[in-house]
Nucleic acid binder design. Structure first.
Length: 513
RNA sequence: GGCGAGGUAGCCAAGCGGUUAGGCAACGGUUUGCAAAACCGUCACACGCCGGUUCGAAUCCGGUCCUCGCCUCCA
């Protein structure tokens, strides 16, 4: 197996993954601040590390995957006040939604999902250590409370990740002058708060941790200082990850880098603009899952390499409902993959006489399947190139269909069918393996068909029994070769969104996404 | 202003120095009572624009136009 290659934001190069400890990979993802339901952008940032973790496991690494939840934050406080809810109650509820929806999208559960509210002692200890080492200082604020700031100029490497020069940052119009801080770029490690406010006790009085310190404290707690891969959205490069590096590495002088690889996923754009809560143009995961299957959203997002931007188009129907054409397209593709998988699995059942030698056309199919499987595997090793892997998966499915067609045409030739079944079995294994690497085709094909059928029926206001009865009536007319009647019934069904397929084993029906 | 990403055939999207990426749509064909599905083929010698390097560039270099992002909360 080839080596896994990853693009590292810090060095701006793609290089082979080298674990710090042989056979072990430690991954940290900056998860969401849970004040609201996750949107499609959050899904994408969880998906990229999920594919990474699957890949690392495929390479035999024992992976520890930590995905944090920021459950202490001013936005949470503000939202909780609006709702008259306790902040931690709100954030716990939203964290639950996030976890449940990421699971629905096929993201493997992380080993640890740490929360800020459960790591106050670690945060306080880290801030204290930074003060002791002269990297941070305490300031009394006008209200009598105390803040602690990180002194960016005390850390020589500041700006390396985002390639920013301190003086450029100061020159930037958006840095607010705050004369109380030693340097306008210094950022808060601890923000003092009034006794009646949400907070915790600390050596600097009552207050809450700053935004960046929690990831330094939690990654160290669960992975130790100096781990393999740190992931997150592009927007976290500066200041969040820059600040994490400063805090963590300043606290561990002479211990090397905080992380060996920094992976940053691109955004999900709506009408060419970044999807963001602040812009109000976001589509929640629930919005999509109301209409589409979770695997469709997953396939859609994996259709673009994780670092590039994803265009998420929305379309308003005449009746006011909003649909997602790209996800619909991906869903049809998932239908296709499941159908092919099912054919490969089922169409060759029964005892077969296995020939000693495969006919040449089957030999070619077998080789083509191997080539596609290899291409998909190599694509994933090349900085998680999921679009190419998806194309390879489609190629295997196509070859499987071709094989099934061929076997059907020559069904009277037992020797050929036996040989085809041997090839089909290996194609099925290849399909399943690559699908697993992508986190697709996770359900039995029947279950997928049933759940998508139910959703599509209810969206159209149809009842399964009614449709089945009409299909049966049409089948009856057809059997009596009354094609005028059967075609009329089929047209009616088609107008209702039901597509019929007359096969050798009877008529099947399905609904478009 | 500083830093960064990107512009690929109707649409989505790989490739990043030399052999067809792939998907969707559209249109032919095989198949079918007719369809659908599946399979085959066409659309596709496409790569923002102008120069340069090279035997050869979508891929490298220089310039230029446009889009987007970060620098404030953001995945």
């Amino acid at each position: 197996m080839a080596r896994l290659r990853l693009y590292d934001t810090l060095t701006r190069e793609t290089r082979e993954f080298e674990p710090r400890a042989p056979g072990i990979a430690r991954v940290y993802l900056c998860g969401p601040t849970t004040y609201d339901a996750p949107h499609v952008g959050h899904a994408r940032s969880a998906l990229a590390p999920d594919v990474l973790v699957r890949r690392l496991r495929r390479h035999g690494y024992q992976v520890t995957y930590v995905r944090n939840v920021t459950d202490v934050d001013d936005k949470i406080l503000a939202r909780a006040r609006e709702r008259g809810e306790a902040p931690l109650e709100l954030s716990a509820r939203m964290a639950g939604v996030y976890q449940e929806q990421m699971r629905a999208l096929g993201c493997l559960d992380p080993e640890v999902e740490p929360r800020v509210s459960q790591h106050l002692p670690e945060i306080v200890a880290l801030v204290s250590a930074l003060i002791a080492q002269g990297h941070a200082y305490e300031l009394e604020m006008p209200g009598g409370t105390h803040d602690v700031y990180f002194a960016v100029r005390s850390f020589a490497g500041y700006g390396r990740l985002s390639r920013r020069k301190l003086d450029d940052l100061v020159a930037g119009a958006r840095v607010e002058r705050d004369d109380s801080k030693r340097d306008p770029l210094d950022f808060a490690l601890w923000k003092g708060a009034g006794r009646d406010e949400w907070g915790w006790e600390s050596p600097w009085g009552w207050g809450r941790p700053g935004w960046h310190i929690e990831c330094s404290a939690m990654s160290e707690k669960h992975l130790g200082f100096g781990f393999d891969i740190h992931a997150g959205g592009m927007d976290l490069v500066f200041p969040h990850h820059e600040n994490e590096i400063a805090q963590s590495e300043a606290a561990h002088p002479g211990c090397g880098a905080m992380a060996s690889y920094w992976l940053h996923n691109g955004f999900v754009n709506v009408d060419k603009e970044k999807m963001a809560k602040s812009l109000g143009n976001f589509v929640t995961v629930s919005d999509v899952l109301e209409r589409n299957d979770p695997e469709a959203l997953r396939a859609f997002l994996l259709g673009v390499q994780y670092r590039g931007p994803v265009q998420f188009d929305t379309e308003k129907l005449a009746d006011g409902r909003v649909v997602f054409p790209g996800v619909d397209e991906a869903e049809r593709r998932v239908d296709y993959l499941y159908a092919a998988e099912r054919r490969l699995r089922d169409a060759f059942g029964g005892a077969m006489t296995v020939p000693a030698k495969l006919p040449p056309e089957l030999l070619a199919t077998r080789d083509a399947v191997s080539a596609a499987a290899k291409a998909g595997d190599e694509a994933l090793d090349d900085d998680l190139n999921t679009p190419v892997a998806l194309a390879s998966l489609g190629e295997i499915a196509r070859l499987g269909n071709e094989l099934a067609d061929l076997a059907w045409k020559r069904r009277k030739d037992a020797g050929f069918v036996g040989a085809a079944s041997v090839v089909a079995r290996s194609a099925h294994v290849a399909l399943r393996r690559l699908a697993d690497d992508l986190g697709l085709l996770r359900a039995p094909a029947e279950e997928y068909a049933a759940r998508t059928r139910q959703r599509r029926l209810s969206r159209r206001g149809l009842r399964e029994a009614d449709v089945a009865a009409r299909v049966l009536a049409r089948d009856e007319a057809r059997r009596q070769r009354d094609f005028t009647a059967s075609d009329r019934l089929r047209d009616e069904l088609s107008a209702a969104g039901v597509t019929l397929r007359d096969g050798p084993l009877g008529t099947e029906w399905s609904l478009e996404p």
